[in-house]
Amino acid sequence: MKLARKLMAASAVAMMATGAMAADIAVIGGSNDDAFWNIIKKGLDDATPGIVANGGSVNYLRLVNYDNFAPDVVQLIRTAISMEVDGLVIPNWVPEAEDPAIKDAMAAGIKVILMNAGGADKARELGAINYVGSDEYVAGVAGGEYFASHGQKNVLCVNTIPGAANLEARCQGVIDGMTAGGGTAAQLPLPSTSFGDATAVAEAIKAELLKDETIDGIITISAGDADSAAVGIDQAGKTGATMLGSFDLNQAGLDRIKGSTQMFAIDQQPYLQGYLAASLLASAIDFGTSLPTFPVLTGPGIVDASNIDATLAGVAKGAR
């Protein structure tokens, strides 16, 4: 009897101890109908069993919509603080609104990792453990270098939303990557009257190709624009001569890579963002690990003929 009571007390103490040590993590992310965030969620879901096995938990707090963006995100951070979590994974979309709340979370003893948006400099400034995500400029450079190393000399980066900082960074990266590889590249900013009109985008690209015969590479800032670009290249009679690349993936683009009418696509690999951010944070809380790699870049991952089959298998499982 006495022994049993002692054992129970001991196990209760043990449970309390693990309760204090285990990583209860809150992850804030985009809305349910956002395909991109469902891939991040797949990464989180795959990381969760390991965290739960060590006595922790993962709570995914999603925005319902993007209508009242900054206040809603801040509200979710406050919710996470009031839940007394041990760790917080947060995209720093709107620094001026989110920074005070993130600092409050840190003051409450919560360990923070920035994911998807924010960047390494912001993570250092706030004192976050790390930044897990991509860098648009680095992704652009990778695209430019890919073109250069495959023999392209003159590349056009088609920007259907000129003025958006992240897209300008993509094109600037392509230009710098090409220039470093010995080629030339330029941005083609399309007027807003053509945004969302596939024919107008395709015809603009066709016109540029007809006007400048030396263009042998086209890269678009989105997967949808690549659908238009493929038709534009075909209509200019340059299929096989002018290579096509794109930022981001969609099914039609993957089919083109498979059928070799598109050369490559640059992926920021959102699955890794969810998976790595949650595991890194839990491991830091549970075991005190710290990763010297800072930031942790999940992209650019290049999808081309060499890895298209594995990528398609990933798409089927909702991870790409």
């Binding site: 009109d197 596939a198 395709a202 659908d227 039609a252």
Partner: peptide
């Protein structure tokens, strides 16, 4: 264009 997007 063998593809449709929700936006645009």
């Amino acid at each position: 264009f063998n593809s449709a997007q929700v936006a645009g």
